[in-house]
Design a protein around this nucleic acid. Structure first.
Length: 424
RNA sequence: GUGGCCGUAGCUCACGUGGUAGAGCACCGGAUUGUGGCUCCGGAGGUAGCGGGUUCGAGACCCGUCGGCCACCCCA
C-alpha cells in the first residue's frame, strides 16, 4: 500500500515552526491595527474571471499557474493566487468604497509553480490595502507600516527598500514602445527569455538576471524620463515623506511589477538572506483596478508580504522567541484509583487556574518512566498520585527545577498551593 | 515548463574500485520493587523511494519512474 503524501509544494507547519508563525502573525496584526487597518477575511475560492480581469491575461500566473476547476454547476472557480483581487471584489460588493478604507488580510495563496527556497505552491501572505486616497501620503503610510514591522521583528538591518514610479498607463505605453524599439536593435544580444518577452511583457526584461541582457539595458531608455507630471510630483512627495520619517530607500528605475494592475508608486523590500527569492514584501498603487472590476472609480494601493520568507529570515537570524516549554505542570499517576483521583482534582484546578498548562500523563508506565516524560516536557512541577496519596487523600508536588523540593498536601489545597507557587 | 544535485533506521549521516547494513541522537526497558535530569547496561526499529536491467552476487553500476532540495522561469 502506498502511503499518501502531501501535495508537492504544500507543506505542513509543525509545532516547532508554528511558534515562529505565531510570533510573526501577532507582530503583524499589532502593527497594522495600530495604524487603524481593519482585518477582512476573504474566501479562498473566487470566480476565475476575477483573476483574469485583474492580474492580466498574459501573465504566467493566469496562463499556467492557477488552480482552476469547474464547480458542480459548471462555473469556473480558482483558488486565489493573490489577495488584492478578492479584497477589491469584496470592497465593491459590500459597498465599502464610499469612504476611504484601510484593510488587511492574511492567509494562503495558491500557484502551480516549481517549489524552491522561499516558494511553495500553497504559500501565505499578509496583505494591506488602502482605498479611496489618491495622494502620496497614503503611499508613505503603507511603507512606514512595513518599515515599522521590520523594526518590531528585528530584521530592519537585513532588508532594503526599493522604490520606483511606473507612471500612468499612457506614460508606460510610451515608454514601452521606446524600450521595445531600443531593445529590438540589440535583439541578438538578448537572452532567449528576454527575446520572447519583447512580445509578451517587455517591461519585465528590465529585471532580467542575464549579464548580456543587463549590458544592453545599461544604455536603454529610462522609465523615469517618460513619466507624466502628476506621477513625477507624487513620487517626489513620497520620497520627501519617507525622508521626513527617516526611512531610507533606493530608487530603482528598473523596478517593475509582474501584475498588470499597478501604476505610479511601486516598491519592494528585498533581502540577501534568502537566496534567489529575496523579495519579502512588495506592493504598489492600482488606481484603475476598482473600476476595472466593475466598481465606481476609486484609487487604491497595497502590499503583500510573504510569510514563509519572513519566517525563513527569523529562523536564519535566530530572532523568534525561544521555544516555550509545552507544559507548566506534568501529572504523574499510577494505577486506576490514582488516575481517577487525578482526573477529578485536575478539573477543579483548571477551573481555578485556566492559564496553567497542565499535561496529564496518559498511557500508563512506571513512576520512573512518567517522571522522565515530566522532565522532558519542560514542566516546572510534577504532581504525583499513587496508592499512598489516594489512601491519604493527598497529592505530592515535586519541583522539577529545584533540587529536593517535594511535599505532600491535601488534594483540597492543591489549587490554592499552585496559585501561590506557579505564578512567575 | 527547463537544468543541476540528492533519496540508507523517527532524525542527521556512514558503508574506499559491487560480496547481501552501521553510528550518533531520539525511542523502549533495566541498574533505582514509588521518583526525572548525569552515568552505565540492554533492546526495538531498515523488502537501502519504487520498478526493471547488468552480474554468480547490487545500497553501490545502467535505464525508467516517483519524491526532495537548489537554480532558471515567474513572483510575495
Amino acid at each position: 500500500m502506498t502511503t499518501i503524501r502531501a501535495i508537492r509544494g504544500m507543506n505542513d507547519i509543525l509545532p516547532d515552526e508554528s511558534s515562529y508563525w505565531q510570533y510573526l502573525e501577532s507582530a503583524v496584526a499589532a502593527v497594522l491595527t495600530s495604524y487603524g487597518y481593519g482585518e477582512i477575511r476573504l474566501p479562498l475560492v473566487e470566480q476565475t474571471a476575477l483573476f483574469r480581469r485583474s492580474i492580466g491575461e498574459v501573465t504566467d500566473i493566469v496562463e499556467k499557474e492557477m488552480y482552476s476547476f469547474d464547480d458542480r454547476n459548471g462555473e469556473s472557480l480558482t483558488l486565489r493566487p493573490e489577495g488584492t483581487a478578492g479584497c477589491v471584489r469584496a470592497a465593491i460588493q459590500n459597498g465599502l468604497l464610499g469612504t476611504p478604507q484601510r484593510l488587511w488580510y492574511s492567509g494562503p495563496m495558491f500557484r502551480y509553480e516549481r517549489p524552491q527556497k522561499g516558494r511553495q505552491r500553497q504559500f501565505h501572505q499578509v496583505g494591506a490595502e488602502a482605498f479611496g486616497i489618491a495622494t502620496p501620503d497614503i503611499d508613505a503610510e503603507l511603507i512606514l507600516m512595513t518599515a515599522r514591522l521590520w523594526r518590531v521583528l528585528g530584521i530592519a538591518d537585513h532588508v532594503q527598500l526599493q522604490l520606483n514610479s511606473i507612471g500612468s498607463s499612457a506614460a508606460r505605453q510610451a515608454y514601452r514602445e521606446a524600450l521595445v524599439n531600443y531593445l529590438s536593435g540589440h535583439r541578438e544580444a538578448l537572452d532567449e527569455d528576454s527575446q520572447r518577452r519583447l512580445q509578451s511583457n517587455p517591461l519585465r526584461i528590465l529585471d532580467s538576471k542575464h549579464p548580456g541582457t543587463r549590458d544592453v539595458l545599461a544604455n536603454a531608455p529610462v522609465l523615469t524620463d517618460y513619466l507624466d507630471a502628476e506621477s513625477r510630483e507624487d513620487f517626489a512627495r513620497l520620497c520627501e515623506l519617507l525622508q521626513a520619517a527617516s526611512v531610507s530607500y533606493v530608487v530603482n528605475p528598473r523596478l517593475v511589477r509582474g501584475l498588470d494592475y499597478y501604476n505610479k508608486t511601486v516598491f519592494e523590500w528585498v533581502t540577501d538572506k534568502l537566496g534567489a527569492q529575496g523579495t519579502v514584501c512588495a506592493g504598489g498603487r492600482y488606481d484603475g483596478l476598482v473600476a476595472q472590476l466593475g466598481g465606481k472609480p476609486c484609487p487604491g494601493i497595497g502590499f503583500a508580504l510573504g510569510k514563509e520568507r519572513l519566517v525563513l529570515m527569523l529562523e536564519a537570524l535566530a530572532l523568534a522567541p525561544p521555544a516555550a516549554a509545552s507544559a507548566d505542570i506534568y501529572v504523574v499517576n499510577a494505577g486506576a484509583a490514582a488516575e481517577t483521583a487525578a482526573f477529578a482534582a485536575l478539573e477543579t484546578v483548571r477551573d481555578a487556574l485556566p492559564a496553567l498548562r497542565i499535561v496529564q500523563h496518559a498511557g500508563g508506565g512506571s513512576f520512573r518512566s512518567q517522571l522522565k516524560k515530566a522532565d522532558k516536557s519542560g514542566a516546572r512541577w510534577a504532581l504525583i498520585w499513587g496508592e499512598d496519596e489516594v489512601a491519604a487523600g493527598t497529592v505530592t508536588v515535586k519541583s522539577l527545577r529545584e533540587q529536593g523540593l517535594q511535599e505532600s498536601l491535601p488534594v483540597a489545597d492543591l489549587a490554592g498551593y499552585l496559585a501561590h507557587h506557579s505564578s512567575p
